[in-house]
Nucleic acid binder design. Structure first.
Lengths: 149, 149
DNA sequence: CTCCAATAGTACGATATCAAACTAAATAAT
DNA sequence: ATTATTTAGTTTGATATCGTACTATTGGAG
């Protein structure tokens, strides 16, 4: 394969990733209240899986959004009583975000609705396409993250 | 594999897609003038590859964004003289967006800079991870698109 | 032909995102 | 200990996105 073809393939890869992300986000956001965004929902999921909580900076690194965006997202999640924000006892500049019981409940309900909505897709495709691409995606994500300036 | 594990895997798939999209968009947007977004850049690329042009509605379907967003994006691209917008002679409600020579030039320059920026990633990973996942991504994208209500 | 439903795009208003500049706390340097 | 530097998060202001309601055009039913 010529290097040009490789570049082209990478470009198509990123295009597909962009469109899949768009399709999924749109569908998810249709289930979410108000203007809660797919990323905000992702943050909630991240926190639910980490009961010890994380700082806003850790979260903005994990989701690759500016910390100024994170401030806004966390404020919004807190307004919905889905998370709490406390000052970090180990560093008074910092805070710790944790999911609330309502947050756990809300996440569960949304994921169930999303599963129902995606059921036709899963039964048509089966697990293999996800199964086969996931390790590659993880590898690509890790490398992109590592090489980021 | 239990069905619950399959759901979990799908969830992780979408999470990885979201983060990769975020990483690439951020890097690309750092190269783009003003606040031009990765999606707008994607639209330009789409039009450059289709000299006959497309209508705004075709574009909003291809990129899965609301047509009201497309109006804004196309206006922005037109302001930068990267595309033209003419009324469709076959349907006066409609328009046709086409890339300009400046648009072609601009796209080329940005893609070259992006290639340079991604060179370390590509040389570390090689083409295989992209190669192997692309057909699966395409399949997933097509199915998601088809099953969308 | 007339009317009506469907379709393409836009105006408007609300909210999300993000860059730049800022405040406060922690850490390092002298 | 004092000062300088770095770090965590927020405020501010600008722009992007998108839902709702609208206008204009098309195409079909009668």
């Amino acid at each position: 394969m010529k290097p040009e073809d490789a570049t082209n393939e990478v470009y198509r890869f990123f295009t597909e990733v962009g469109i899949i992300n768009q399709l999924i986000s749109t569908q998810l956001e249709a289930f979410l209240p108000g203007r809660m965004t797919a990323t905000q929902f992702g943050i909630l999921g991240h926190l639910v899986r980490r009961p010890e909580g994380e700082t806003p900076l850790q979260l903005s690194n994990a989701f690759q959004v500016p910390k100024t965006s994170m401030t806004h997202m966390l404020a919004s999640l807190e307004n919905h009583n889905l998370i709490t924000l406390e000052t970090n006892p180990k560093d008074k500049r910092s805070k710790i975000a944790r999911s609330t019981p309502q947050g756990v409940e809300f996440l569960k309900a949304c994921m169930e609705r999303m599963s129902e909505a995606l059921a036709p897709v899963l039964s048509e495709l089966g697990p293999e396409p996800f199964n086969r691409s996931l390790p590659n995606l993880t590898l690509i994500r890790e490398t992109l993250d590592k090489e980021r300036n």
